[in-house]
Simulated scan of single mutants.
Amino acid sequence: MEDLEKAVKDYFTANPKAKEIHGTEDGFLFENKYFATQHNATLEEGKEVKTFSNPNKVESNTENTTVELNEEQKELLANGLVKGNYNAVKDLVKFLKLETENLKEDTLISALEAYKLTQAEKE
C-alpha cells in the first residue's frame, strides 16, 4: 500500500492539474475509473479500487470550481493571516473569489479564516 501512496504522490507532483486518480492494489494508476475497475476485476476478489484526490487542489468557497493554490498562497493561508500582509491577503481573497462586506484588513483576514475552516471541514 505504501508503494501505491508513493505512486499517487509522484503522479500528482508530475500532474498538478489532475483532480483525482484511481489506484488498484497491485499499484497501477488510472485516470479513468472504468479502466481501473476493469483491471481490478482481474485481481483477487475483495480488492477495491481506491480513488485519490489531489491534495494541492482546493474548492473555491463561492463556486463549485476547483482552484489551485501556489506555494506562496498556501504559506500565506497557513501562516500569514496577520496584519501587515494587506496586499497579499487582498490578492488571495480576490483569487479565491471570496465575498466580503468591505476591503478592510480585518475583514479580509476574517474571510480567509472562515475559508480555512470550511476547507478543513471538507477534508
Rank of each mutant, 00 (worst) to 15 (best):
E44F: 12
A41P: 05
D91C: 06
K33N: 04
S110N: 13
T66Q: 12
E25W: 06
T37N: 10
G46F: 14
K90P: 00
T107W: 12
G80Q: 03
L92R: 01
K122V: 11
K50D: 06
F95I: 07
I21M: 10
M1Y: 07
N70Q: 03
P16R: 04
K104A: 13
N64I: 08
L98H: 07
L112N: 00
L4C: 04
L81C: 06
T66D: 07
N70P: 04
K17G: 02
T13Q: 12
N54I: 09
V82A: 06
L117D: 11
L98Q: 02
E48Y: 08
E72W: 12
E63L: 14
N85R: 07
K19Q: 06
N54T: 06
A41F: 15
L43M: 10
H22E: 04
F52L: 08
F12V: 03
K57W: 10
Q38F: 12
A114G: 09
E101D: 11
K17R: 07
E63T: 15
E121I: 14
E105R: 01
I21P: 00
D106S: 15
M1Q: 05
I21V: 15
K97D: 09
A36L: 05
S60E: 08
V58N: 00
E2A: 02
V8K: 03
G84S: 03
L69Q: 04
K6Q: 13
T118I: 15
K47F: 14
K33C: 06
T37Y: 04
N56L: 11
E63G: 06
T66K: 07
M1F: 13
A111F: 06
E20F: 14
D10V: 13
L98D: 01
A18M: 09
T42G: 10
D91E: 14
Y11C: 05
E48C: 04
G23S: 04
S53M: 11
E2F: 03
E99Q: 14
P16W: 08
T65Y: 09
F52Q: 03
N70F: 09
H39R: 07
P55C: 08
L29M: 10
P55T: 07
T37D: 10
V49T: 09
F12W: 03
N32K: 09
Q38I: 15
Q38H: 01
L117N: 11
L103R: 00
F12C: 02
E48K: 10
L112V: 09
E45A: 11
N15Q: 13
K57G: 03
N64M: 12
A114N: 10
M1R: 02
